[in-house]
């Protein structure tokens, strides 16, 4: 199945998706420095893994990329436009990016097919079309037989598949994943990673994934290693691994 995206793949192949210059984030009136001046560039189609110990600032960085939090200082551009100056950050989150959380974060009172439809409420799609697309997406992640199951009736791996389908709801060009296998056993972790990587490759999406797991890093096209709010290493991974 070919997913719809907001940008044609060929046009954006070498386009700079994210560009950060001197990015800083402070909490508690400057007592906590989560990011201390981060610089990087991410281009369309890259699979970037952000590595580092707990508290190094990788999740904060992912929040910035998702416009979930604003930087204290520095510049962060998305396709040449400052994320801080976005008139409608919600629209950016709804249409440009898809987010996958470690704890799945499905809504417990909604079925799988309903959960996938949630981001589509910020689009003009009619109800029937929303349902149709959610069904297609769930089939894409091999959950066509679990459409009407509530999250409490799904296994961890299945929940994360629903979350992945939800992240693709509005055809994003960027996927942001925060420890997507952190709550899964090794077998499910492998399957989920394979799914995310396959989808990223098929759709030429940019994937930014935060993890502790070095095995995942080996599958990426590039790794960014962080420590104490700074990037300490930024290197390409040989293409055969991706």
């Amino acid at each position: 199945m070919k997913l719809e995206t907001t940008h044609a793949s060929a046009d954006v192949a070498s386009e700079v998706v994210f560009e950060a210059k001197g990015l800083k984030k402070e909490y508690d009136d400057g007592r906590v420095h989560a990011l201390r001046g981060v610089n990087f560039r991410i281009t369309q189609g890259e699979f970037v893994v952000i590595l580092g110990p707990s508290g190094c600032g990788k999740t904060t960085l992912l929040q910035m990329l998702g416009a979930l939090a604003e930087p204290s200082a520095g510049i962060l551009h998305y396709r040449g436009k400052s994320l801080a100056d976005l008139a409608d950050p919600a629209s950016y989150r709804a249409r440009e990016i898809g987010i996958i959380f470690q704890a799945f974060h499905l809504l417990p009172t909604f079925t799988a097919v309903e959960n996938v439809q949630m981001p589509m409420f910020e689009t003009d799609r009619p109800a029937a079309e929303r349902t149709e697309r959610a069904v297609e997406l769930l089939k894409l992640v091999a959950l066509g037989h679990r459409l009407d199951h509530f999250p409490s009736k799904l296994s961890g791996g299945e929940k994360q598949r629903v979350a992945i389908a939800r992240s693709l709801a509005n055809g994003p060009t960027v996927l942001l994943a925060d420890e997507p296998t952190g709550n899964l056993d090794s077998e499910n972790s492998k399957k989920i990673l394979e799914l995310i990587i396959r989808l990223r490759r098929e759709q030429n999406m940019t994937l930014v994934l935060v993890t502790h797991d070095l095995n995942i890093a080996r599958m990426a096209t590039r790794t960014i290693e962080m420590k104490d709010g700074l990037i300490v290493a930024d290197q390409q991974v040989p293409q055969t691994a991706a």
Binding site: G66, L68, D88, A90, S91, R93, A94, R95, I99, F101, H105, L107, M118, P119, F121, E122, R166, S167, A169, N170
Partner: peptide, 12 residues
């Protein structure tokens, strides 16, 4: 917060 993170506007 999840709904906001996946693109819902605060007004919704």
């Amino acid at each position: 917060c999840i709904l906001l993170a996946i693109g819902w506007k605060p007004s919704r």
